[in-house]
Design a protein around this nucleic acid. Sequence first.
DNA 1: CTAGTACAACTCTAATATCC
DNA 2: GGATATTAGAGTTGTACTAG
Length: 470
Amino acid sequence: MISLSQVIADSLDLVVKDSIRKVNRKRRSSRGHLSSRSEKADTDVAERKRVKMEPNSEASLAPLKEYKESDRNKSKKKQTFDGTNGIDSTSKDKKTRGNDVNSSNSVTDPVLPHDAPSTIVPQSEELHKKGRKIHKGWETEPVLPEHRYTRWLYPPQIKIINDNFTKIKQGTFDEEERRIVYDWISKYKITNNLDDDQLRERIFASKKEKNRDNFWCDLTECVPHRVLASVYTHVRARWHPYANKGIWTKDEDDRLLDAHAQLGTSWTKISHIVERPANECSDHYRRMFVCPERRKGLWSEDEKNEYLSIVIPMMNERNHVTRDGHDPFWVTVQEKMGRKRSAHQCRIKWEDELRGRDLPNRRSGSDFRRSDCGILIKHVLDMNIKERGVINFKSLGMDTYKGEWSVKTLRDQWRYITYRSCGMDKELATSLPFEKLMERVKSTFRREIEGKSENDDVVYAESEESDGGE
DNA sequence: CTAGTACAACTCTAATATCC
DNA sequence: GGATATTAGAGTTGTACTAG
């Protein structure tokens, strides 16, 4: 039974969080321009630090990043539960280590658990060199469907359930899943008369206490098609006391570096010193400090050629690429580049520009015309997307467009289309419910969608005229 | 002025190593 | 042997800067 007071409390909570989100967005968007690029990095970071997002100050112990409709509502995978219809060969395998639970028919992916290790590509060549141990959990005993919420399952076991009983969902939690989790935990909090600290204590209880009631099992049971580990990881990440602290400050950077110098990769210990979740510490260090000597700015032609001479041979070797074959291992590329560019820079270079550069029908971003907007919108409509953030541009670019446009161009043009349909009001475009947004897109680009536009200029060139929606 | 480029920031989660 | 820690690939967004 949900009490009235609970409903009101929940609503208030959402309102509070919503207003905090709006303030944060406003703060971010109020940043001014800077004069020179050389100042950019430092000043930009300093400025961002000043507008550091609100810490976890929400009234209740709500998930720290509650389903944010506008800014972080990104279910990245087109996974469906009723089979593989929503999944294409590129999107479903995009994670290197993704256990491909949805491709049971794949010839190269044996179903039997003892075969599973051979189907997993190592996460990097480093690990590959180390030699991968096979976790004992992989030598499975009989797996039952209810084990998905009562036991910690490993990839082969998940695969068995997926293939024989019920489809298992992986990837980012979508809006509905977040709502279910949030509601369940709110009710649990009320039913057990817990305050915020007690609830957090429950979520982070040691394993001795963990099963004193069926917290995790019951919660997982409420989220269809998810396994215990998935729900557990998701919830612990969101309720982490140090989560959602926004921009890193200089002080935090310093503490991170000091702690890392002393403790190495004991990220959990470092986490307490820096007061950030362990994975954030690890991520931030990896991103910012692991390749300090990297070059910044434009890539010279020589540099691009060097890069391609490294990446292209890698792409032809199965051990050097992710499972979908679209990406090499970026850390390896970084090392082969002599650390002159970071793995992240290398990835972006590939993603934004060089992937598909030699394909015969390749066009450049400056050729994108209004008719191309119409085609893009039709493709998006065909996907039958229901929520923001689920368009798989990589798949769209590589599979649907066959490399005609770069992933970057498609993403940017789609963003432009959404802004345009809101009269270039970016705030509106990012906050409108997806359905409303699509109505505006369809209305604004009606003629282009129908292929009747008499004006087929390059889209950016005429962005200030024509109707701006309804 | 704008398209193109670059990338920091922040995030999420699966795989797997390691701990207890 | 189950739980937890660590690692790393991958996604989006916002915006500074450059070139035309």
